[in-house]
């Protein structure tokens, strides 16, 4: 964390989110180009999603304790914190991916447009078509680039005028079209790691979601590929609400509008570590003037 001092100071020059990747940008990874210059209300005014008193258990293990967190429309919300603090667990609750873990139990509410997605009668499959997800490791299917994009619309039975147009639109949306337009029929495994991750983002936006969840989307990528994905995230912010879990604090500082800091608290009797939300605020505030001591310790590298 040698660049913490850079992060803590507000950016002098900030690129706008829509700036395409340029070589100049690649050379200045330390630039903080977050939504700092965006003037956002202190509290998200019309949250697209909101966690209310969210508790998650894996069997008898209490993984996340009482998380209350709103996610603002067309904002990037970063969830940061040390390993085992429950941030990925919270993320996976937001589109009910935790349903797939048989021992997982969720209490509390996750509101999506004021509808609790954990309410009775809510179809998790339908939830996931509105709330897409991008994973830590690029996970394209062992199919062609075209079929990777077309897979989501096909399985969900989406009404599509022409699939070719949808594929092109999704790939353009993920800033990948120019690189792959001549090899749409080739295997997605032939792409580089960064391209694969952008393909996964394209695949997600092809199903026209409202919210995109990203679980450490750049942790398997090199710095250049990371920069491109981050640029893409800031472009996507105009059309989608993005919630990102990251281990990389500089990344949170660079791209996010708001940051939620989680930590883990050991249980006094069992010693199991339960994750909880410590502080949630504008990213600029979190990284310059956090109100909680634990946040300050973490972002300054004294802990975690």
């Amino acid at each position: 964390m040698k660049e913490t001092s850079d992060m803590a100071t507000p950016p002098a020059t900030a690129t706008t989110g829509a700036t395409p990747v340029t070589n100049a940008h690649l050379g200045s990874l330390a630039d903080v180009s977050s939504g700092a210059e965006r003037h956002l209300p202190v509290v998200p005014e019309s949250p697209v999603m909101e966690a209310r008193d969210l508790n998650v258990f894996y069997g008898g293990f209490h993984a996340v304790h009482d998380v209350n967190l709103p996610y603002g429309r067309n904002e990037i919300t970063a969830m940061i914190g040390p390993s085992g603090c429950g941030k990925s667990t919270v993320l996976r609750c937001l589109n009910r991916m935790n349903d797939l873990v048989t021992s997982a139990r969720v209490e509390g509410q996750v509101l999506y447009h004021d509808q609790d997605i954990y309410a009775k009668g809510v179809d998790p499959i339908a939830v996931r078509t509105h709330i897409g997800m991008v994973f830590q490791k690029p996970n394209p299917f062992p199919k062609s680039i075209y079929d990777n994009i077309a897979y989501g619309p096909r399985v969900t039975g989406m009404k599509v005028d022409t699939m070719d147009d949808l594929v092109e639109e999704a790939l353009r949306g993920a800033a990948l079209w120019d690189e792959v337009k001549d090899k749409l029929k080739q295997s997605a495994y032939g792409l580089s790691g960064g391209q694969q991750q952008r393909l996964c983002i394209a695949r997600t936006i092809a199903t026209k979601p409202d919210v995109i969840l990203m679980d450490e989307p750049c942790s398997a990528l090199d710095p250049i590929a990371t920069a491109r994905v981050e640029d893409l995230m800031m472009t996507l912010r105009d059309d989608y609400t993005i919630i990102v879990v990251t281990h990389n604090m500089q990344q949170a500082a660079r791209v996010s509008d708001r940051t939620a800091f989680f930590t883990a608290r050991p249980d006094e009797t069992t010693g199991n570590r339960t994750g909880l939300l410590v502080e949630f605020d504008l990213t600029t505030k979190i990284f310059s003037n956090p109100s909680d001591k634990r946040t300050e310790d973490y972002i300054s590298g004294r802990f975690g």
Binding site: R128, P140, F141, V155
Partner: peptide
């Protein structure tokens, strides 16, 4: 078959 493959498909709204 890696878990990520299934997750990727399920996250797109596949059953």
């Amino acid at each position: 078959v890696p878990r990520e493959m299934r997750d990727g498909s399920l996250a797109l709204g596949a059953t």
